[in-house]
């Protein structure tokens, strides 16, 4: 009961904040709402007993990435953005994609939980209080290849950013 109340409250907050992110005209306000939504996710992770994920979520997204977001937003004149047209030529494509995603979501909700394969995790994992170790082991054994691919991808992105930003080296 309490569990459900917490879940729905958090879910409502996340959805409302996510909506505000795209509805707010001022980019800094958008960023603020995004921070709230991300904090909501962190709370959800805690409820799922994935404390490590919650901590990383706050550290990386709220404390790191959002700071950089704000850094960039502050460099851009917000007033000019507020006066820009809200609808661009992309709106038709956007509607199509949104409808597609909505259809997908509705299908999933109608079909319910039966389409997901749920596996009860072994008790050893749950009782082990060190959820950091579990994540670490998974990343460095079962999912080593995706992990490495993600690292390489990030490295590529980093080099690309440096090249773009530093035109004159």
């Amino acid at each position: 009961m309490i569990d459900q109340i917490i879940f729905y409250t958090l879910a409502f907050i996340i959805v409302a904040m996510s909506l505000m992110v795209i509805l707010a005209r001022n980019a800094v306000r958008s960023a603020l709402y995004l921070i709230s939504a991300l904090l909501g996710f962190a709370a959800l992770y805690i409820r799922l007993q994935a404390e490590l994920l919650a901590g990383v979520q706050i550290l990386v997204y709220v404390g790191g990435i959002m700071v950089l977001f704000l850094f960039v937003i502050m460099l851009v004149s917000v007033r000019t953005m507020e006066h820009q047209a809200r609808q661009t030529r992309q709106w038709k494509a956007a509607v199509v994609i949104a409808l597609g995603v909505a259809a997908e979501l509705i299908y999933l909700i109608v079909r319910g939980g039966s389409i997901f394969v749920t596996k009860q995790p072994p008790d050893a994992l749950l009782t082990k209080s060190q959820n950091t170790q579990v994540v670490g082991e998974a990343l460095y054994s079962t999912y080593l290849l995706p992990f490495e691919i993600a690292s390489v991808l990030l490295l590529v992105a980093m080099i690309g950013a440096v090249v773009l930003a530093k035109k004159k080296i």
């Binding site: 460099l75 004149s77 773009l164």
Partner: peptide, 13 residues
């Protein structure tokens, strides 16, 4: 919020 005055979009970076 016009700290930098009107700016050309190209010069953001």
């Amino acid at each position: 919020h016009d700290i930098f005055g009107a700016i050309d979009e190209k010069t953001v970076l």
